[in-house]
Design a protein around this nucleic acid. Structure first.
Lengths: 201, 201
DNA sequence: AGGTCTGTCTACCAATTGGTAAGGGCAAGG
DNA sequence: CCTTGCCCTTACCAATTGGTAGACAGACCT
């Protein structure tokens, strides 16, 4: 039987995935009900269950999509660049994502919070990207372009910093920084200076 | 199951608060049910409601307690110190808390995620501490002991980094760092070098 | 002894949750 | 035309949730 190949077919699945990413990343797993999700999509809850089987499966699919695309974007940003320019490019890319789709980074954080099997899955998706980054750092250190330290710890620090600066909105407010685009640009520049000072020899 | 509590001075309230901190900080607000909480305390849910009125009120009380003590600890750690030594002392203190009571930092993060009135409340509790820190940084910069940058952004970066390095367990695992005590010590040392390189002129 | 206050409990409840069962519309294709 | 498979729906449900109402036991006070 030929699969229903007509173009106009159901984009419902994709729409669900997008909305789920938004909801899970913003409000968290438990606080996102399938009914609400369905209502926002103008669809019944059973439609969601039809496409994804269960809430857990939906969440897992969301992780795969979100992490996958994020990883690709990062690898793409670093491709063909070397030294500080590569770091800069990756940070810029992640920052752009953080501003345009904050829920995507929020989902990462939510997943680490939930732990268990889901976190494993995310970790596996993320591993190749991290491996690339580690290789890059090791090389740069050996070349003397970067401070000689444990690349793993550098990665964690950088990740945490980017993630935090990009998503800890309330903390930003606490120090008097409003989450506007203009401020985001300033923050990114400052973050880069911060990283450069810490990393570049 | 008949259960009779002969209690002299009600430490129940304190026990609830402690357990709530652990649960909210680890599993989040929505994923923490009053029934579960009560069961872990060997108490009925209505006892919790008697002491705190509602789940929201309990959460708010938890924030107040957690943030209050954290702030005190940080102020205490910085008292009487100047320059890099002060930063170091504060970071050490926060790290100790992160290792011994990860749920306390988790609660902060959870609160920023929930946003709204609760985040406001946390922000207000945190403001005095942040104000102290900002003053400190401004002074150090003017004295030439630290790089001349926007103190707000430095604060955000430092906060994010400490918080992230302390709590992003899965990401740590992803780069091959197991959350053991020994590793935590290494991470702290690395974090301090990272901060020092970025901050100290 | 009797009254009041405090702390905990039992009994319930309305609402919401994720999930099952089954049916209907509709295009494809024999 | 009629079957088949896809997509989405209505109907329902058992479990769980936060919360109310009220009883009961002990401590303290008079």
């Amino acid at each position: 039987m030929p699969r229903m190949g007509v173009v106009a077919g159901s984009d419902t699945r994709e729409r669900i995935l997008a909305e789920a990413l938004e909801a899970f990343g913003t409000n968290g797993f438990e606080a996102t009900s399938l009914d609400d999700l369905a209502e926002q999509l103008g669809v019944r809850k059973q439609t969601i269950l039809y496409h994804f089987g269960s809430k857990s499966d939906l969440f897992m699919a969301t992780i795969d999509a979100a992490v996958g695309e994020l990883g690709e974007a990062m690898v793409e940003a670093g491709r063909g660049r070397t030294g500080w320019s590569a770091v800069e490019s990756v940070v810029n890319t992640v920052f752009r994502i953080a501003v345009r789709e904050p829920a995507r980074l929020g989902l990462l954080r939510e997943t680490t919070r939930l732990g268990g099997e889901w976190a494993n899955r995310m970790r596996e998706s993320l591993t190749p990207v991290i491996e690339k980054a580690r290789l890059f750092l090791t090389l740069e250190m050996r070349r003397g372009n970067m401070r000689q330290t444990d690349p793993n710890l550098v990665l964690v620090s950088a990740y945490s910093t980017v993630m935090g600066v990009a998503t800890e909105v309330e903390v930003l407010r606490a120090v008097g920084i409003e989450p506007t685009l203009r401020e985001a640009v300033k923050r990114r520049r400052e973050l880069l200076r911060f990283l450069e000072a810490a990393l570049v020899a």
